[in-house]
C-alpha cells in the first residue's frame, strides 16, 4: 500500500469529504493561500475556493462560534485553531455553546462540527505554542476528543469525526505531521471510541496517547531486547473511551504504565488510572498503576529543557523496566 504522511492523511480526509458532502467547509486562520501554519490545508483553497475555505483574521472565539452556529443549522464545518494553546480563546464557544446546545435544548439540536488543532511540544515554540490541553475538553460532556497517532488513524478518525453529529475536538501532534505510514486511498472511517492495540505483549501494558504511542512503541522495541514483552494500547479517542480494550489488556499483563505528554496533575492519565482501578482489572494488578507524564511546568524554550519537560523514549524504557521488575 502507498505511504503518505500524517499531515497528508488529514488533508486527504478533508478533501475527500468536501468532494463528497457539500455541507462540509473549512474555517480558520491562514488556511487559504498560506495553506495553514503547518501546511495541512495546502492546495485546498485552490481546489475549493473562498466559498468553502473560509480564511479568517485572528478571531479564535469568532471562528469557533461561527462553526458552532453553522453546525446548528446542519452544516458540517471544520474549524482549525492554529495551536492548541489558542483553544483557550475559543473555549467559550466550544465549552459553553457547542458542547451544551443539544442537551440544553432538550435533545432537539445537534452541532456536527470538528475543531482541529495541533498540540504538543518539541518544536522550540515555547510556552504559548506547545501545550497539550486535551483533558480540559475531555472534562466536558457533549464534546468528543480524538487524538490520532498514525497516518492511517488520522484519516479514518477524521472522516468519522466529520460525519459525527457532535462537536469533536481533533487533536493533532506537530511532531507527527511528517511521519509516514500506509493509508488507503479510498475513504474509510474508524469509529470514535475504539482503542487500538498497537503492539501485543504479555509483561506490561502501556496505555499512551498521541506522540507517546510512537515513543512507547520505540521503547517496546528496546525492552524486547531485554526480554520484556510490552503491549501498547492507543485509546485513539479519549471521549468516548474504549475502556474494554484497556481493561482486557491490563487483565492479561497485570501491570500498567500510562504515558502522556500533558502535565500529570489533572491529566488524562488520572482518568485512565481511575478506570483501571474501578474495573475488574484491579484484581489482576501485580504492581501499582504508574503514570509517566509531563512535568508540572509550562513548556520551556531551551532545547534540553524542553526535551526534559515531557517523557522521552528513555524515560519510558526506564519506567517500564522498573514496573516489570517491581521496583515501583
Amino acid at each position: 500500500m502507498r505511504e503518505i504522511t500524517y499531515l497528508e492523511a488529514i488533508r486527504e480526509a478533508m478533501t475527500q469529504e468536501m468532494e463528497r458532502d457539500e455541507s462540509v467547509f473549512l474555517i480558520g486562520e491562514d488556511i487559504g493561500t498560506y495553506g495553514g501554519a503547518f501546511q495541512v490545508t495546502h492546495g485546498m483553497y485552490e481546489q475549493f475556493g473562498p466559498e468553502r475555505i473560509l480564511d479568517t483574521p485572528i478571531t479564535e472565539l469568532g471562528l469557533t462560534g461561527a462553526a458552532t452556529g453553522a453546525a446548528l443549522i446542519g452544516m458540517r464545518p471544520i474549524a482549525e485553531i492554529m495551536f492548541m494553546d489558542f483553544t483557550t480563546l475559543a473555549s467559550e464557544q466550544l465549552v459553553n455553546q457547542a458542547a451544551k446546545l443539544r442537551f440544553m435544548f432538550g435533545g432537539k439540536a445537534s452541532v456536527p462540527m470538528v475543531l482541529r488543532t495541533p498540540a504538543g511540544s518539541g518544536t522550540g515554540a515555547a510556552e504559548h505554542h506547545s501545550q497539550s490541553l486535551e483533558n480540559w475538553f475531555v472534562h466536558v460532556p457533549g464534546l468528543k476528543v480524538v487524538m490520532p497517532t498514525t497516518p492511517y488513524d488520522a484519516k479514518g478518525l477524521l472522516l468519522a469525526s466529520i460525519r459525527d453529529n457532535n462537536p469533536v475536538v481533533f487533536v493533532e501532534h506537530k511532531l507527527l505531521y511528517k511521519t509516514k505510514g500506509e493509508v488507503p486511498e479510498e475513504d474509510y472511517t474508524i469509529p470514535l471510541g475504539q482503542a487500538d492495540v498497537k503492539r501485543s505483549g504479555t509483561d506490561l501494558t502501556i496505555v499512551a496517547t498521541s506522540i507517546m504511542v510512537s515513543r512507547s512503541l520505540e521503547a517496546a522495541e528496546e525492552l524486547a531486547k531485554e526480554g520484556i514483552n510490552v503491549e501498547v494500547v492507543d485509546p485513539r479517542s479519549l471521549r468516548p473511551l474504549d475502556t474494554g480494550t484497556i481493561v482486557e489488556s491490563v487483565k492479561k499483563t497485570g501491570k500498567v504504565l500510562i504515558v502522556h505528554e500533558a502535565v500529570k496533575t489533572g491529566g488524562f492519565g488520572g482518568e485512565l488510572a481511575g478506570v483501571i482501578a474501578e474495573s475488574e482489572a484491579f484484581g489482576y494488578l501485580e504492581a501499582p498503576i504508574v503514570r509517566l507524564a509531563g512535568r508540572e511546568i509550562p513548556i520551556p524554550y531551551n532545547r534540553t529543557l524542553e526535551q526534559n519537560a515531557v517523557p522521552q523514549v528513555a524515560n519510558i524504557v526506564e519506567k517500564a523496566r522498573d514496573i516489570v521488575q517491581l521496583k515501583v
Partner: peptide, 16 residues
C-alpha cells in the same frame, strides 16, 4: 455575547 459568533456562522450556512 455568546450568541453573536454563532449568528455569524448561521449566516455563513444560510449564505451557502
Amino acid at each position: 455575547g455568546g450568541g453573536l459568533p454563532m449568528a455569524v456562522g448561521v449566516g455563513v450556512g444560510l449564505k451557502m
